[in-house]
Design a binder for these strands. Structure first.
Length: 417
DNA sequence: TCTGGGGTCCTAGGACCC
DNA sequence: TCTGGGGTCCTAGGACCC
């Protein structure tokens, strides 16, 4: 049996720790530049404040309803996240930190799962002060469903430790509520007659399931049936890609301003690389204009360079990033967002350091241009750059940038912190 | 000149998640 | 006026080798 421990409205409750007077007040926390809502308490949800809405759409409501609004403070959230995780590690030896506000833990030693869950919840709240919900089940997928129920329940803990409880929990849930089933997979499942979580659990045609959902479909189905496919991992492994990107508070035409941002991002990425003892074999930079100002000429570019000598050296990475920026810079277009990506990451000691080797592969004299597009009158085209691992289609959907058949779905997409 | 099969590696792209 | 940031995994298909 395993459990997922999920902090309730994590960022909001981090802020609340220092503002006990806001105990029952609705709170929202905003993203970088106070752009949009990335966390909100149940009290704020009652005003229909959705995840990801632009703040300027709800600022009036916030004033009227006296909703407390915070700019984000990620240093604080990271710190409190570590504290929560160490409490969990002190209680159970096997903890998989899944995200800043979520962890899977092993509960196999417990005699009474529900009471163990309550104990853990109480300990986290006592020692850190962050309220959590806990879902307990034989598999991660079921535990995720349990924790969703737990958030709405009085105790904040739900244990699906018997088959009957599991069946009851799935009853009536749409298949999109299953962990790992997003909009695209939901449509594919619908096309073969699977509409609810129970449908998926009982589906009898593994070939068709695999055809539509690849191997993952069968795994999710097994997990719903209590068969573990995604075992608890320790997750101490190193990151496989590292990025640093930021929207400017004010878009800029100035190459110097953008260079400064690029240098900062490259330096951050280099620092992260060294912290995990890695080097990267490929570096990419991204600059783009503001897609919301569709009346302006748009630019969305990404350029990558393969490195002959993998590195995590700040100066080397900044130098290459600047070369890339030179290569792709477009005069007369205001840049709204910029970023640096470290790709093809490998262990530091895995490659031999040759101090005299050139950094950029001379065989690739001209830098690899992966994306470079300027839109015409029809509005920005989003082109995905594969290597960076970003999800431009989902992103474009959220931004209402794709055709109308997509725009209706963007609200379904999880917009998360 | 034509024809064959099998394997591995790499990359672009799709989908999801928090 | 004002719309975030950071990740993972899987697969198809092409390049290349024998």
């Amino acid at each position: 049996m395993l459990a997922v421990v999920d902090c309730n409205a994590f960022y909001c409750n981090c802020e609340r720790l220092f503002r006990p007077d806001l105990k029952n007040t609705p709170i929202v926390v905003l993203s970088n530049n106070d752009g949009c809502v990335i966390s909100r308490t149940p009290e704020a949800k009652k005003f229909d404040i959705a995840m990801g809405v632009p703040y300027h759409h709800i600022s009036k409501l916030c004033r009227e309803k006296k909703i407390a609004v915070f700019s984000s403070n990620f240093a604080l959230y990271t710190n409190l996240s570590h504290r929560v995780m160490s409490v969990l590690k002190s209680i159970t030896s096997r903890v998989e930190v899944y995200s800043v506000d979520e962890a899977f833990i092993d509960l196999s030693g417990a005699r009474d799962f529900f009471h163990e869950g309550q104990y853990i919840k109480a300990e986290v709240e006592r020692l850190v002060g962050i309220p959590v919900s806990i879902g307990i089940a034989p598999t991660k997928t079921l535990a995720k469903m349990a924790v969703e129920m737990a958030k709405k329940s009085h105790f904040g803990v739900i244990s699906l430790d018997t088959k009957k409880k599991q069946l009851d929990a799935l009853k009536g849930l749409p298949v999109s509520a299953v962990w790992g089933v997003g909009h695209g997979r939901q449509l594919r499942l619908q096309s073969i007659g699977i509409k609810t979580a129970t449908d998926l659990m009982n589906y009898k045609n593994p070939l068709l399931l695999r055809k539509n959902l690849t191997k993952l479909g069968e795994q999710i189905q097994d997990e719903l049936n209590g068969i573990q496919c995604f075992p608890l991992g320790e997750r101490t492994e190193k990151k496989k890609s590292i990025s640093s990107t930021r929207t400017f508070s004010q878009a800029s035409y100035d190459k110097i301003v953008v260079s400064q941002a690029i240098a900062t991002h490259a330096s951050d990425v280099a620092c992260e690389l060294r912290m995990q003892g890695s080097v990267c074999k490929k570096i990419a930079i991204m600059i783009r204009s503001n897609p919301f100002q569709s009346f302006h000429e748009q630019y969305n570019g990404m350029l990558a360079a393969n490195l002959l000598t993998p590195t995590s050296n700040t100066f080397e990475l900044i130098k290459i990033a600047f070369e890339l920026l030179d290569e792709m810079w477009k005069h007369g277009i205001s840049i709204h967002k910029a970023g640096v990506f470290a790709l093809d990451i490998q262990d530091e000691h895995e490659h031999e350091v040759d101090l005299f080797a050139p950094i950029i592969d001379p065989r690739q004299a001209e830098l690899m241009r992966t994306i470079d597009c300027i839109n015409d009158r029809e509005g920005p085209r989003m082109v995905r750059s594969a290597a960076c691992g970003t999800d431009n289609k989902a992103w474009a959907m959220r931004q209402n940038m794709l055709s109308p058949r997509y725009t209706t779905s963007w609200i379904d997409l999880p917009m998360v912190r």
